[in-house]
Nucleic acid binder design. Structure first.
Lengths: 110, 110
DNA sequence: TATTATATATAAGTTTATTATATATATTTT
DNA sequence: AAAATATATATAATAAACTTATATATAATA
């Protein structure tokens, strides 16, 4: 498992990127996909995921559609246009961040 | 500048690694070194740095010595033995985290 | 003399995530 | 058939981490 304090600040980016790659998804599906892609090392909790999804919706980055699978409700999330371009920025920013932090964390002088 | 929410959770690791590479350092020096190594992209604020240093000290990862440069006080921080081995772990953990998150953030299917 | 750089530190407030809890249906195992 | 597990969303209380604001003081430079 990934030390969870490192994950802080990346949760939103993860969610956005998954929606960008997979089209519409629902909450439970997102957690399963993250687990799969990270070979079990990242597990999103619902207590963290839903507030993020609701915030993204409030900020206009995603929209929702509710569907019924039998009697069970399922809420699909889809990126808006602004959400899509914002996702690109956030992902680029993450890799910039890694490059920059590597300058700091790689050196090991004599 | 690096988006600061991404930096969350890495601050401690940055401080530890700098101390591991440079021997004893004082707070102000640490902020300057981070700025230098990151080519100006990461700027630690004191409000974030000092609580981290105090916590590391309380946890036994670093020790302090106070010196006077003229009339001005300067507080040097040095890694303890446990602090040193913990630093290695934290840095490794960071790069593991990057590898894992890359699995999630890199894919872009049709 | 005024400004900037050096130097440490705390407190209030905000954001973000964790843990606990609530609710309910569908499927699989015993 | 009953029990357990998986599917599915959501909120509330709490805790952790960081930001912003503030306080204090000396040294060097313009």
């Amino acid at each position: 498992m990934i030390a969870n304090d490192l994950l802080k600040g990346t949760l939103r980016t993860i969610v956005l990127k998954l929606l960008a790659d997979n089209g519409r998804m629902y909450g439970y599906e997102i957690t399963k996909k993250v687990e799969e892609l990270s070979t079990g090392k990242i597990k999103l909790t619902f207590g963290a995921l839903y507030p993020v999804l609701h915030k993204l919706e409030a900020d206009g980055h995603i929209t929702t559609e509710t569907e019924y699978i039998g009697k069970r409700v399922r809420k699909y999330y889809t990126l808006t246009e602004t959400g899509r371009s914002w996702t690109e920025q956030r992902v680029d920013e993450f890799f910039d961040f890694v490059t920059t932090l590597t300058y700091v964390l790689k050196p090991t002088p004599a």
